[in-house]
Design a protein around this nucleic acid. Structure first.
Lengths: 156, 156
DNA sequence: TATTGTTATACTCTATAACTATA
DNA sequence: TATAGTTATAGAGTATAACAATA
């Protein structure tokens, strides 16, 4: 059965009450929309947001250990194991033994991972531009700065 | 073991590459932070964001049917069944038979649901204000408007 | 003792598909 | 036939806790 259509942010005749007053609810609705379009745009590669983040982080920080990846992504070590397993199954990532510490592995993209990441990044760029093209360059920059503040982060 | 600390949006020494250029990644980081604080603030009631949304929607639209709740929330009917089950288990929601249509139920909050929702809404308001108090009233309004645009919605 | 990675287990949120009882 | 709700099943993504190997 066809049950799920794209999310309708406002159904006519429905009273959303206090939900309309919360910044958090607005962020959540935006996130839902962005997530839907991200998944659709990246479907050819089987890439989800956490997988994309992991690929970019590992590609920019070669030799990262699993525990560091977990910390950067804000997830438990056990979650990082599953994430790396999935990327290994997709042929995008590999664990390399570390001679100096036989408990640990250095994470790295495979050749296929590096090649596909170029196209994946381009697809994400197109997705991101499609989602944000209703804003001027300055509006986008300001919006991103405010969101980073909201996230508790170092606005660059 | 103590494994998961609060999400660190920027780990020193890590190169985030293109992630820093995407509006979508900024939204996701903000969402992670807001979600963490929401869950912590609502822990006394066992309320998650979808459960809160469902409670508010049902309280403002009494007699809503399960299939309508699913549509408003953008989830499948089977998901709405699980959500309503959880809220029934918490003693917050009830299904009432509809005489004119014996397949359907009208959803409604229980007495306890109505009473607790007052306190729950207050806790969410405090959470939302705590998260957004670094912005002026105008900045908040503009930010919310932009997020609603991003979500593809009717900016009020 | 502490750390790295793994496994076992569980919970939330989501989906698709088949089923039932009604309409 | 179509609709409202349910159940069965599955898959992400997350968690905590215990474990083995190594430091």
């Amino acid at each position: 059965m066809q049950d799920t259509e794209p999310f309708v942010p406002r159904v006519p005749g429905i009273d959303y009450g206090v939900l309309d007053t919360f910044l958090g609810y607005a962020v959540r609705r935006a996130q839902i929309r962005l997530y839907e379009d991200f998944i659709a745009s990246l479907a050819p590669w089987g890439i989800t947001p956490p997988r994309f983040t992991a690929m970019v982080i590992v590609s920019r920080n070669p030799g990262l250990k699993l525990i560091q990846l977990a910390k950067v992504m804000g997830i438990a070590r056990s979650g990082a194991v599953i994430l790396v397993d999935a990327l290994e199954d997709l042929g995008y990532m590999q664990r390399h033994p570390v001679p100096e510490d036989r408990r640990a592995f250095n994470l790295a993209l495979t050749e296929k991972g590096r090649t596909d990441l170029v196209n994946i990044i381009q697809a994400v760029q197109e997705h991101d531009q499609r989602m944000s093209r209703m804003f001027s360059t300055e509006e986008q920059a300001r919006l991103r700065r405010q969101l980073i503040q909201l996230a508790g982060g170092t606005p660059e």
